[in-house]
Simulated assay, not measured.
Amino acid sequence: MTSTTKSMYTDSQVAAWLRGLYTVAWADGNYDPEEEELIAQLTKDLAELDEIEGLKPIKPEELATALGKDPDTAENFLRTAVLVAVADGVYSKPEYELLHEFCEALEIEVEALKSLEQTLYQPETETETSSAASPLSPPRKRKSSHPDLLHPVKDWLDDMEVKDPRLARFVCKVIPPQCPFERDINLFGRTIAHIPALCKLNPLYEQFTTLRFRSLSYLADECDEDISEYIK
């Protein structure tokens, strides 16, 4: 079934948006399985746009020019950029610095992002304290009594509006319907152990799944698209 819903963003905006996410995925220099799947999907989606010949990083100023001056568009891009940055469960300094550059170029300040800074993964802190910092948890010297350091950024991510079918499809493709690592261990026909979904260890897991659900609902209810391929 073909969608007749008008896209909120132009091809140029979507191309710049996806290139921005690609730039974030490569910011820390790692190529984890999560980034591998993400980049593969970005490559496929960008190949369908006439505005760009191939996948390549984008400079903050170029991104800002392409996205335009609408603050809602800028915030929605930053929300997806955050989800890409923490997809592997680690928020690194290069990712933080790139998001900061994007904010400056887009001329927008997101107060909620300051809470994410408290989880910044710093290898030098590990050496000084002789203890490994856990992904998306604050280093020892930054401990806080606040019960949920990420509460502001969680609320901010939950405010994202899904208004473009191409970006909605991208979200549905990249975020799996269930964690591939969750499984039962069976012996002689009986379940003897259960391995939990490792992605649930990511404190922003609910934001991932909620965004995927909203994207599915948007495609089905507003775009009248068949979403069966995304829920298998």
Results as ranks from 00 to 15, higher is better:
69 K>G: 11
53 E>R: 10
56 K>L: 11
48 E>G: 06
49 L>T: 01
28 D>C: 02
35 E>Y: 01
55 L>V: 09
35 E>K: 07
62 E>Q: 05
63 L>T: 02
50 D>P: 03
30 N>S: 15
51 E>G: 00
44 K>N: 13
73 T>G: 00
38 L>V: 10
36 E>H: 00
73 T>S: 10
50 D>C: 02
64 A>M: 02
57 P>S: 08
39 I>V: 15
63 L>M: 10
64 A>K: 00
53 E>A: 10
61 E>M: 09
42 L>A: 09
33 P>H: 07
36 E>P: 02
73 T>C: 11
74 A>L: 09
56 K>G: 12
28 D>M: 06
38 L>D: 10
62 E>T: 01
75 E>Y: 11
73 T>R: 03
47 A>V: 01
37 E>W: 12
65 T>N: 15
37 E>V: 13
76 N>E: 14
63 L>I: 10
53 E>N: 03
31 Y>L: 10
35 E>N: 07
39 I>F: 09
54 G>V: 05
52 I>G: 00
33 P>C: 11
33 P>Y: 03
70 D>M: 03
34 E>C: 08
76 N>I: 02
56 K>S: 14
53 E>F: 00
56 K>W: 02
37 E>Q: 11
48 E>F: 05
47 A>N: 13
29 G>P: 00
37 E>Y: 09
36 E>D: 15
41 Q>M: 04
53 E>S: 06
34 E>F: 07
72 D>G: 12
28 D>Y: 10
73 T>E: 08
48 E>Y: 02
69 K>A: 15
27 A>D: 07
59 K>P: 04
41 Q>G: 09
47 A>M: 04
52 I>H: 11
74 A>I: 03
67 L>F: 10
27 A>M: 02
63 L>V: 06
68 G>Q: 07
41 Q>P: 05
34 E>K: 12
74 A>K: 06
73 T>I: 06
44 K>W: 12
59 K>R: 12
50 D>E: 04
54 G>F: 10
